[in-house]
Each structure stands twice: as structure tokens, then as C-alpha cells.
Amino acid sequence: MEMDLLQHFDAYVAAEKKIEPKDWMPDAYRKTLVRQISQHAHSEIVGMLPEGNWISRAPSLKRKAILMAKVQDEAGHGLYLYSACETLGVERDDLIADLHSGKAKYSSIFNYPTLTWADMGAIGWLVDGAAIMNQVPLCKCSYGPYARAMVRVCKEESFHQRQGFQIMLTLANGTEEQKAMAQDALNRWWWPSLMMFGPPDDNSPNSAQSMAWNIKRFSNDELRQKFVDLTVPQAELLGLTLPDPDLTWNEETGHYDFGEIDWSEFQRVISGHGPCNKERLETRRNAWDNGAWVREAAQAHAEKRAARRDAAGETAAA
């Protein structure tokens, strides 16, 4: 019986059909999705913090409005990703508890600090750019609710990327100080952005199964290469220098060769020892804990209201 279901499932997915919440699915498929979608949702929520850090200091009212709208979009992404995840039979509050306990992960990139305004440009351009590269294939992912959520996420992300690039362009064409600010941000965000595609293919434990299930479509290294190829000419247009002396065009492969990524840094940050890991998680925990009385009040009010309505109904009936 189980075997039949599994065969049917595999064939269904292989035929590029969408799995919906009420369909039968293997436990491991469900678990993989819960892990991936919740991790993605957590990344959106924690990812609000490094950029939220500059809302109060945005250098013009227009930039302030754009940044607020952008960070608000991230919250919206978190919201519909948590909702997509809930279709797999888990509760948002439990997922959040896993984030706060450190059991669930989020994208390591958000453990780096935002030190200047130029970081708002670099994050939009590079971090959102890398995210799009990772996420566009997910619009065709085999799990329906995730795929549909990603269509909207990707539309907004591509808007964010253009906004980020536009900040960089303004800075790169600005005063000497602004140019230096832009170059410094690029220097700090370039390598962590390349790390966003995950470990190299020969060291990526979850990849093969996710590929078979049509959750993942391209390998980490393929996506990373695509990102580098796309970004190099953009950096040239900005007149900024990518911080990699080994970066060269390879006539033969038709791609850019690039230098060795420091995977020990990746491991360090992922295991909790990046510049802001503790601070980011503490900020999220505080927001949640400080809001407990508000959530309790809303709950209590809803219950009292329902009770009053029932009581009024009974009186009317009598």
C-alpha cells in the first residue's frame, strides 16, 4: 500500500505536477519542506533587522519611505511563507519557538552587521540578487503552496534588487566619500553573498533528494556561477571593484573564474559565531517576549467578546 502511494507520488512529481496540502506525501518530503520553508520564513523575519537598522537614519524622506516599504515586504514574505508552512500541519508559533531556541536556522547572511548607508544598497543588489537566483527556480517547486508563495516573493525581490542597485549607482556617482562608502560595502558583502548559495556541490548533504523531488532545480555551484556571471558586468557599470584578485573571464568555459571561498568563515557564522548571531536572535526573542502581554490581551478580549455575544444570544432567545 505504502509502496503504491510512494510510486504514485514519485511519478506524479516527475511529471511536473503539483502536490497540494491534502495529497498523500512521504514523511521525509513533508519534513524537508517544513525545514526549508520555515528556514526561509525565519530568514525573512531576521533579515528585517539589518536593514531595519537604517530606517531611522535614511538620508532622505524618499529613501526612508522606500526602505520602510521594503522591510515591510520582508515581513509580508515571512507571513505567507509561515502560512505555506502551516499547510503542512505545523503551527506558526511552534516554528517561531524553534527559531528562538536555536533549533531552526535562518540565512547566515543576516548575521553580518550593516555599518553604513551603502549597506542598504549592497544588500539589495547582492543579497536580494543572490536570493532571487536561489528562489526563482522555487516558483516551479513541486509543492503547490510554496511555489505560489514564491511567485509573489520573487516579484517583490526583483524590485528590491533594482532599488538596491539604484542606491549603489547614486553612491558610485556621488562624492568621493560616497564612492568609498559603496566600495567598502561591496568589499564586505561580496563573499558572504557568494556563500548564500550554500556549500559546494561535493559537500551538500540535502541536495540529491531535493532535486529528485523537484524542490531544488539547480545545484549550489551552478547558481553561484550564474550569479557571478551576472554580477561582474553590473559592478563594472558601477565603476566598483569586486574584492577578488582571481576573478577573470574564461574564454573556454564562457564563465568567470573566481577565487577560493573561505568556507571556514561560512562554518563559523553558521555555527553561531558570526558578528551578529547572538544579537539578531536576542532581538527577535525580545520582540516576542515583550509582546506576550499584547497577544494575551488580544486573545482574552476575543474570548470575552465571544462569551458576551453568546450570552446576548441566549437572552434574546429566552
Partner: peptide
């Protein structure tokens, strides 16, 4: 209100407060 972004008691209120702040800036 912009300072609330990322620090609200629940995600929906995070969005609401930022949205109201955005209207005020507009």
C-alpha cells in the same frame, strides 16, 4: 513608528505599524 519595524509583538502588527509609519512619512 519606523523604529517598530522588526520589533512588533506579532508579525501582523509589525506590518501594520510600519504601514502606518509609511503613510505618515508620505
Amino acid at each position: 513608528l519606523g523604529l517598530w519595524t522588526g520589533h512588533g509583538p506579532v508579525l501582523e502588527e509589525d506590518i501594520a505599524l510600519t504601514n502606518i509609519g509609511l503613510d505618515q512619512i508620505g
